[in-house]
């Protein structure tokens, strides 16, 4: 796969606040790249730099091998973006908004394409209504329509589900999946909620306080061998000795009289449970979740959930 976007040592400060700190990452063609971090981690600043809205202090951005600084207008023809809430011209209709931004995209776009895009985002039939009469979800979808009307290869979506109800979130998620699968778009999508994009992302990047914490393919980040199995027990004082003398000790990450946590493939859970029963340990509850999720929660909620997570 060839990289569509390469970011190297990108940094940006606002006065003394370091918003983005030496951030490097690469997005390959066709990927749905989840961009994770808590609010204020630097996601929006990074995305705005990718779009030329904010100028980096240092570092480079290259798209399809071209340096962004040197070819901003040329490269923007191949990018579509929704940054935060898509604020549109409320006194104009959905069609007028879309038509206008289509003209600004620097190529001639036939009305047929506009109808097509309205169809894709599910706004067909509502295009004549004034945008101020739209729901937040409809505005969000119109924003995505504007981002993709000129058929760019790369879509940059900054928190596209923010402020939406569960149904709206589900609609946007389905739309993103379809854009990737049916329309072959490379998508960079940010969120502060892991569960929102873990189902749609092929790759993930987590940043915290402007710095990269980890990135990689979802298959690697969500390696099943690193699932956390949490077992609640009726308190058992000598449980530590029991586990230490068993084959399970190597997989254990936490041992206390009322709770055991193992990091392993969930397929071992029945065996583990059977062994515990055989040892006369009373199991109250078994819970499993992935260590990556726990890790993410530990960052985004800082200290509050760290203890619960591990």
């Amino acid at each position: 796969m060839k990289p569509i976007l390469e970011v190297t040592d990108l940094s940006k400060s606002f006065k003394k606040f370091k918003a983005v700190d030496k951030l490097s990452f690469t997005i390959e063609q066709g990927a749905v790249y989840g961009f994770l971090g808590q609010n204020g981690a630097g996601k929006s600043t990074t995305m705005r730099m990718l779009l030329g809205l904010i100028f980096p202090d240092s570092g480079t951005i290259a798209i399809n091998g071209y340096k962004f600084n040197n070819s901003r207008r040329f490269l923007l023809k191949n990018i579509g973006a929704v940054i935060e809430r898509p604020d549109l011209y409320g006194y104009l209709s959905g069609w007028d908004n879309l038509r206008m931004f289509a003209t600004l995209s620097g190529m001639s776009i036939p009305n047929k394409r506009i109808h097509e895009v309205l169809e894709i985002v599910g706004l067909k039939g509502r295009e004549k209504d004034k945008v101020k009469a739209y729901s937040q979800g409809m505005k969000q979808r119109l924003g995505i329509a504007i981002a993709m009307v000129h058929d760019p290869d790369l879509l940059i979506l900054d928190e596209p589900t923010n402020g939406l109800d569960p149904q709206g979130i589900a609609e946007i998620r389905a739309l993103v999946i379809s854009l990737s699968r049916d329309h072959n778009k490379t998508i960079l999508i940010s969120s502060h909620l892991l569960y929102e994009i873990e189902q749609i992302a092929t790759n993930m990047l987590i940043i915290h306080k402007g710095k990269k914490l980890s990135d990689g393919p979802v298959s690697q980040l969500f390696n099943p061998d690193e699932t956390l199995i949490e077992i609640e027990l009726q308190p058992e004082e000598n449980i530590k000795t029991v586990v230490e003398n068993s084959q399970w000790y190597g997989k254990s990450v936490r041992i206390s009289p009322s709770k055991l946590v193992f990091k392993m493939n969930p397929s071992f859970t029945p065996d583990l449970n059977r062994w515990l029963v055989n040892q006369n340990v009373n199991v109250l509850n078994i819970n499993s979740r992935h260590s990556f999720e726990a890790y993410f929660l530990s960052i985004t909620n800082d200290t509050a959930t760290t203890d619960r997570a591990i």
């Binding site: 779009l51 809205l53 973006a81 549109l88 011209y89 600004l104």
Partner: peptide, 14 residues
């Protein structure tokens, strides 16, 4: 203020 400026500037205009 309306937020439309950032949308405009993500389009290839000078």
């Amino acid at each position: 203020n309306a937020g439309t400026l950032r949308l405009m500037l993500t389009k290839p205009i000078s």
